[in-house]
């Protein structure tokens, strides 16, 4: 609840005419040796987003005038109008950036600023209206949830989820115990997922989704649930993935998570990048608004 009011107050502040300039903060460009310098892949681009525009078509957004009864529908047909409920939403408006090996990029912004849409576009799941997304390998969204079935046991869901992410039977067998251990749901793995508490469900989903090695991993609000212990475990796992020279994108409203996990933050506002730079600077500016 506290988070929500915080968010709302932020929204209010933004609407009340605070100057919004496109600021780009570049961290200290001094090259120096670091832990990643041994990996010659570190620093090469993995994701390039070039002037990306995404337009959504939304059905069923009925307006006041259009009350969706049979008579108005017929009238509309007779007048040869299209469905007025079909709205186009320009969710991402000209975003460009380059992400590199070893980056963990946090994306912040208020609700509806296009964060999730941007992630889906990077994952190649939403076609761009104009512009392009170039990637090295297949970016994958940490979102196996949609493939799981609540009525089935945790066991079956682990297998189903792993296959949905493109594993083969040998890999599933290999990862199975690890997933059960990591999720910490114990004997509940024998029960249908519909009997799980929301925390247990979230833990199992994260455990399944993060079982696969990804070149580019996109995480959308996956860390919001779970107890403190699990949060720490999942953050460790994200760090590990990042150390394996992958690139991680993280969308979260919980700014602490971003500050702890990311080395770069993009601030999206109304589908555009308002700020891009190191977490401290961007989050300070974001909080100040």
């Amino acid at each position: 609840m506290a988070e929500l009011t915080e968010e709302l107050s932020r929204v209010k502040a933004e609407d009340s005419g605070v100057p919004s300039t496109d600021v780009r903060v570049h961290p200290n460009p001094e090259p120096s040796g670091g832990p990643e310098s041994g990996d010659d892949r570190a620093g090469t681009p993995t994701v390039i987003v070039d002037d990306l525009h995404i337009i959504y078509r939304v059905y069923g957004a009925a307006t006041e005038a259009e009350k969706g009864n049979a008579a108005t529908a017929l009238l509309r047909l007779l007048k040869r109008q299209g469905r007025p409920q079909m709205k186009e939403i320009h969710a991402v408006r000209g975003v460009s950036f380059v992400a590199r090996h070893g980056d963990a990029i946090g994306i912040v912004g208020r609700n509806g600023s296009g964060k999730s849409t941007l992630l889906r576009a990077i994952a190649g799941l939403l076609p761009p209206h104009s512009g392009a997304v170039y990637t090295d390998g297949q970016p994958s969204l940490l979102g196996v949830n949609a493939a799981l079935m609540r009525e089935l046991t945790g066991e079956r869901n682990i297998v189903l989820g792993c296959y949905a992410m493109g594993m083969n039977p040998a890999q599933v067998k290999e990862k199975y115990d690890e997933i059960v251990d990591f999720s910490g749901i114990g004997e509940f793995v024998q029960f249908p997922m519909s009997t799980y508490s929301s925390g247990m469900g979230a833990r199992l989903r994260f455990a399944i989704a993060s079982a696969k090695a990804h070149d580019v991993l996109l995480i959308d609000e996956a860390l919001a649930t779970g107890d403190r212990d699990f949060k720490r475990k999942s953050q460790d796992r994200i760090k590990k993935m990042r150390d394996e020279a992958g690139t991680v994108f993280l969308v979260a409203h919980n700014l602490d998570v971003i500050e702890e996990t990311c080395n770069r933050v993009l601030w999206l506002h109304k589908g555009k990048i308002k700020m891009d730079g190191d977490p401290k600077t961007v989050l300070e500016a974001y909080n100040a608004v």
Partner: peptide, 17 residues
């Protein structure tokens, strides 16, 4: 990630190296 390390990563990303 602590700050110095991230600065390193970005430095490599943007640097001439």
């Amino acid at each position: 990630m602590s700050q110095p390390e991230s600065a390193v990563a970005d430095a490599q990303a943007g640097g001439p190296k």
